[in-house]
Design a binder for these strands. Structure first.
Length: 576
DNA sequence: GCCGTTTTCGGCCCGACTGTTTTCAGTCG
């Protein structure tokens, strides 16, 4: 059993403990354990075998025994017992906004409600109003929450949320009451998907600011409103939370509302050890109410003895320790990207010509572009036959002849067949400037076979990089099961690049693993996988993800300037 | 259930908002 599965089970135990009314601290211990296991670097089997699990912070005797049982037997009696006590449907009911474990438990115990459907029916039958802690309004809210859940699964891709947030912030910036305004929360941390939009504003007249916000176009209704907090729904269903603080409180509040929750918890804990209390309003000495003023987030961190931690990496995965030691990486920026690989054209399933794609890339500041249409086994995408490859090459050579200070590299996105071989012979592969190897079919292999398939592809001397390593589609499809640790290892050994596909639906290699690749010395290429002109701009989402993965300029392949890239690609071709 | 340059017991991060309550529990972030 892998650590992802173990982490899931520990999390579920945490939820179940809340549902049966156990101590909240006990559930938290399981949540912490789940996170700890998820982020483990070392193989969990080895840790269990070496009896070293309980040396890890957050894992004590009880969790050690339970994790060991899972690893050794693949089962956990404690979990099974809990699971038998708790109807499956309660987990779905927990997702209804406004319902937490306590209320769900009441619904179950008093009304025997175990499914979302039963809950909806009970609301319509007016049966919630008499329950302790419930009332008319709660019942109405629950009913609306069920509709909301049915309408959408409650998460949005980053670009959709970001563009709406930019519009709202842009409109509010013009208001004179607004002294500062910024996105906060998971949006500011550049998460791949977000549940809602958090916006923080600073000003002295919160009521006026909230009034103006409520009146912005696209806002459908107000869900909650207090003296400093406003919650609204947009017409597309996204929830927006606006918080208003004073300009003096802004730096503290910006940090607080940017999160993550785990980062904040760790920061508060650390501050406490220094004799400070921190919250969204300031930094206070524990022995008095006196606050420490800070003009910016930079000063906030400085006061606490830390260098500035970029929002993207505030996940409590070592950033605080690194900031303390002055070891934070200098994160890659969009301007560092010097060229764009993985670009499709009209030769396969793209909609633009090679020349137009090149011009667009150039206008975006690139020095080179790497054309890689689909290969012959991708029938559905118009994969290239041998004669088309030849024609495309001729066109690229012709264009390169007339372009100055810009270069088009001729490549291919070659399918990795089930056995790990590519779908062209070496005699064809060797003619390309670069080769991206990707899986586009036979997703349903077991983990071992898929891992072998990818590793074998990486062993091919003509392969430059591995494309979208897990095949996941955010909010739509899980990636195929694969042991990425071994894949990264193989890439490290063979000196291969791994793609971070910048398409906002993919962002594959996922950022956790980017960090792992960096540790192993594997370079990441941030590729747009563009099928039209606009698609080239998706590169920014890849840069966001790379930043979350702690990548610096030197960790990213396509930050090489043109002359270096020409050199690297000519040397790397099968000559190892 | 975890943890300890105060501790092996008694803590465990903090605050806004809502709705149900007559002073607070539950939820959320």
């Amino acid at each position: 059993m892998d650590r992802k599965e173990i982490s899931r089970i520990l999390n579920e135990i945490g939820v179940m403990l809340e549902l049966i009314g156990e101590s909240p601290f006990k559930s938290r211990a399981y949540y912490n354990g789940a996170r700890t296991v998820e982020l483990l670097k070392e193989d969990i089997g080895d840790l269990v075998a070496g009896d070293r699990l309980k040396d890890i912070k957050g894992i004590g005797k009880a969790l050690d025994e339970k994790i060991s049982e899972l690893v050794k037997t693949g089962r956990l009696r404690y979990y099974d017992n809990l699971k038998n006590q708790i109807p499956e449907g309660l987990f779905e009911i927990l997702k209804v906004p406004g319902l937490g474990p306590k209320k769900v438990r009441t619904l179950y115990e008093k009304l025997s409600i175990t499914t979302l459907g039963e809950l909806e029916y009970s609301c319509i039958e007016n049966r919630l109003v008499d329950l302790p802690g419930f009332g008319e309004k709660t019942q109405q809210k629950v009913l609306e929450g069920i509709q909301y859940l049915k309408k959408n699964r409650g998460r949005y891709l980053y670009p959709e949320a970001w563009s709406r947030a930019e519009e709202l912030i842009g409109a509010m910036e013009k208001e004179e009451e607004v002294k500062h305004i910024s996105a906060a929360g998971s949006l500011r941390r550049k998460s791949e998907t977000v549940k809602d939009i958090d916006i923080l504003a600073a000003g002295y007249d919160a009521e006026a600011i909230m009034d103006k916000f409520e009146a912005l176009p696209g806002i459908e209704k107000t869900v909650e409103r207090g003296s400093s907090k406003l919650g609204v729904l947009l017409e597309n269903g996204i929830r927006v939370d606006l918080r208003v603080v004073s300009p003096e409180q802004y730096p503290f509040a910006l940090h607080h509302f940017t999160g993550s929750k785990e980062h904040n918890t760790a920061m508060r804990h650390r501050s406490k050890g220094m004799g400070y209390k921190i919250n969204e309003y300031g930094i206070f000495r524990e022995d008095g109410d006196e606050g420490v003023s800070c003009a910016s987030e930079e000063e906030f961190f400085k006061t606490l003895g830390l260098s500035f931690i970029p929002p993207e990496i505030r996940e409590n995965t070592g950033e605080i320790e690194a900031a303390e030691e002055g070891n934070l990486p200098s994160l890659v920026e969009a301007a560092d990207i010097k060229g764009l690989f993985h670009v499709h054209t009209v030769y396969s399933d793209g909609s633009a010509s090679i020349e137009d794609m090149a011009e667009m890339a150039r206008s975006l500041g690139a020095e080179y572009i790497g054309i890689s249409d689909h290969s012959r086994s991708a029938y559905y995408a118009g994969g290239l036959k041998e004669d088309q490859i030849k024609r495309q090459r001729e066109e690229i050579d012709r264009l390169n002849g007339k372009l100055r200070d810009f270069r088009i590299f001729a490549g291919i996105e070659s399918d990795i067949l089930p056995d790990g071989s590519l779908d062209y012979p070496d005699s064809i592969l060797e003619k390309f400037d670069f080769v991206i190897a990707s899986v586009h079919s036979n997703f349903t292999m077991d983990r071992d076979s898929m891992t072998k398939r990818l590793v074998r592809a990486l062993e091919n001397p003509f392969v430059t990089m591995l494309g979208h390593p897990t095949g996941r589609l955010l909010l739509a499809r899980e990636g195929y099961p694969v042991d990425l640790e071994s894949v990264i290892e193989a890439a490290a050994e063979k000196g291969k690049i791994i793609e971070l596909n910048a398409n906002p639906y993919r962002l594959d290699l996922e950022w956790h693993w980017c960090r792992r690749a960096k540790e192993r010395g594997v370079k990441i290429s941030i590729n747009p996988d563009a099928h039209n002109l606009e698609g080239l701009k998706d590169i920014i989402y890849g840069v966001n993800a790379a930043r979350k993965g702690w990548l610096s300029k030197q960790d990213v392949f396509n930050t090489y300037p043109l002359d270096v890239m020409v050199d690297v690609l000519s040397r790397g071709r099968g000559g190892e």
